[in-house]
Write a protein that binds this DNA or RNA. Structure first.
Lengths: 226, 226
DNA sequence: GCAAATATGATAGTATTACTATTATCTTAG
DNA sequence: CTAAGATAATAGTAATACTATCATATTTGC
């Protein structure tokens, strides 16, 4: 799977970076280690100074790639959702049956990322954990409307719309396709978080996956056409 | 409704404050205006210095009540969930029919708070908006396990368990009662946020309420006993 | 192979934040 | 009316979130 995607470059809004981190070794190192460092210490404690030290570089050099850590987070999460989008499109292409297609789509969006010998500098397993812990912080801000207008959440929005379409393909009369799609996407991050930190608030664990919960939920709420 | 609750004091974990803000006029003013100020400028831009200025008091005086703004947020959200719990218990008491009881419960948890002549110093309408925008930030941190052990999320946990029980009372064989309860609670905050900032990702608006979406969802996924 | 351009590194500096500490003043209960 | 307790004012510290400048590598274009 990975090999197929190894050469694909995920498109990210150009206003999220000052200089494209994919354009240099240092840029890639910044992206690679920012994921690891945010995962290690949490977004609040993460600083460009600490990142510079970690990669034997300099705070000022990091600033040459990203305006601030908020934009870096938006960059990382855009990359993640873009990567998920590829997986979604790929995994659901050529599936004719709408129900099967939707289930496969939910499967892709809700599964936790499995370790995989990775080729690129980005560790998707860790990035997935970063998204679970930090994604909400990227939009729960006073700047959200301005940033949304600038297209900083475009990839996520597009993914949610794709899921909505798959829902409508199964049941075109379902009255809440957008809300269901966004509930699945946000809800799966939340369930993954709960199983790590609030295990009494979820049935999900090593055996029971968020996928099962959401597929059960969606199957029962949608009316299948005869 | 409000009058009934006017005299009830909501119990909050004592380690969330240094000095009980309910014990003095200044303490109440701190709570009252912190809600307004966090709503105005967002949690990231909110500081104790700005709050001190706003209430014609002093940064150092605020610190005598709360260790830091994170604990203040935990205090405010605990108050909110405690207040919701009273409403839930009150609104569902004496309802025999489990399905009706559950629907009423969901109704209470998902409705947006209506303006109401308020008696206490806390403006619940604004606090509701603060919870929508900031609650996730209170637990998406590296300190979550330690703080959860200290009981800082006890009220929220208890509310989620209550909802879970109501779900099980309708359908004891439903395999994901905790996940469904937590999805409703987190999901409703998310839907309220989306309708303000990402209207293409939700059907909810002035006419269609999150309540309708979640009641529809729950009704269709639970099997009613004959 | 070398000069010019570009990238990176090192250092310094600023305003703000998130506090702690100390002292002064105000309020109020006995 | 005094003493205890609460609040206000001020100062200070370390860290954060940057900006600016200059020096030193590294690359590349000829």
């Amino acid at each position: 799977m990975k090999n197929l995607f190894a050469s694909i470059k995920i498109e990210i809004n150009k206003n999220l970076y000052v200089k494209d981190p994919e354009s240099s070794a240092l840029g890639k190192k910044i992206v690679e280690h920012s994921i690891l460092l945010i995962h290690e210490m949490g977004f609040e404690h993460f600083t460009f100074k600490k990142l510079g030290a970690k990669i034997n570089s300099n705070e000022s050099s990091v600033y040459r790639y990203f305006e601030n850590k908020h934009k870096l987070l938006l960059y990382l999460t855009s990359w993640y959702w873009g990567w998920k989008e590829y997986q979604l499109v790929f995994a659901t292409a050529n599936i004719e049956n709408p129900k099967k297609k939707l289930e496969t789509g939910i499967q892709v969006l809700t599964r936790s990322v499995e370790r995989d010998s990775f080729i690129s500098h980005i560790d998707e397993v860790i990035l997935n954990k970063v998204v679970i812990n930090e994604y909400s912080k990227s939009f729960l801000s006073k700047e959200v409307d301005k940033e949304n207008k600038e297209g900083f959440f475009a990839v996520y929005n597009r993914l949610a719309i794709r899921l909505k379409q798959m829902i409508l393909a199964v049941d075109s009369s379902y009255p809440f396709p957008s809300s269901l799609a966004s509930t699945i996407m946000e809800g799966t991050l939340h369930q993954h978080f709960l199983k790590e930190h609030f295990s009494s608030l979820t049935e999900c664990n090593d055996k029971i996956l968020p996928s099962q919960f959401f597929i059960h939920l969606v199957s029962s709420t949608l009316n299948l056409p005869k």
